[in-house]
């Protein structure tokens, strides 16, 4: 198994980082509580930040297009997206920067929605201050990020289905009919589950077995 390479980004070698910062409004989800424009302006003055903008929907097609164009035009080598939780859109933005040749790990997200605007709705000033700090934290993190390469591993094309009720049966049949081997484990002596005990089923009043 090869270890992930830690080689420095080829294109920019040992040069100073070139950071792009994008502060997403998420429509009004973030913008009604956080002054996104102020946050973006503040970030523009930070060392290494080449582009800093507020943007209505970073995840939308036009939003992504704009960021990608900026990466190409300004030779950005890492990006901060200040928007929703990375648990929601990290994959989206990783793909986005990957598509213009950046290593997908050269990204950090500042969580301005789930962990800022939505939880400090009645305090615009302090929410904005927090957003500024979160973005600054992201910038300092992204500055030190290094490209990483994913490993490819073999995979067993077989599924274990635990439970032989209607859901387990359906899943097992769909998989098996698609050509995958399935092991179906059922605790009781027969498959069928609760549904097998029912008489007629709503709304069409047909038999359950």
């Amino acid at each position: 198994m090869s270890k992930p390479t830690l080689a420095k980004q080829a294109a920019h070698g040992d040069q100073d980082p070139r950071i792009g910062v994008y502060v997403c409004h998420c429509g009004l989800n973030i913008a009604q509580t956080v002054d996104c424009h102020r946050v973006a302006e503040g970030a523009a003055n930070v060392d290494g930040v080449v582009v800093s903008k507020d943007i209505v929907y970073a995840c939308s097609e036009p939003g992504q297009q704009q960021i990608k164009q900026d990466i190409i035009d300004n030779g950005l080598d890492r990006v901060v997206i200040a928007s929703c939780s990375p648990r929601l859109h990290e994959a989206t933005f990783k793909k986005m920067i990957d598509s213009v040749g950046l290593n997908p790990y050269m990204l950090d997200m500042a969580n301005l929605r789930e962990q800022c605007s939505w939880v400090h709705m009645n305090d615009r000033e302090n929410a904005t201050l927090k957003a500024e700090t979160l973005v600054n934290m992201s910038i300092s993190r992204v500055r030190l990020l290094e490209p990483l390469i994913e490993d490819i591993l073999p995979l067993t094309q077989k599924t274990l289905v635990i439970g032989g009720g209607i859901a387990g049966i359906q899943a097992a049949l769909d998989l098996a009919d698609s050509g995958y081997d399935v092991t179906l484990v059922e605790k009781s002596p027969s498959v069928g589950g609760i549904m097998a005990q029912l008489d007629k089923t709503f709304p069409t009043m047909d038999c359950s077995i």
Binding site: G164, L175, T183, E186, S188, P189
Partner: peptide, 8 residues
């Protein structure tokens, strides 16, 4: 393609 293990 389905290996059914009941009582399992």
């Amino acid at each position: 393609r389905i290996k059914l293990l009941s009582l399992s």
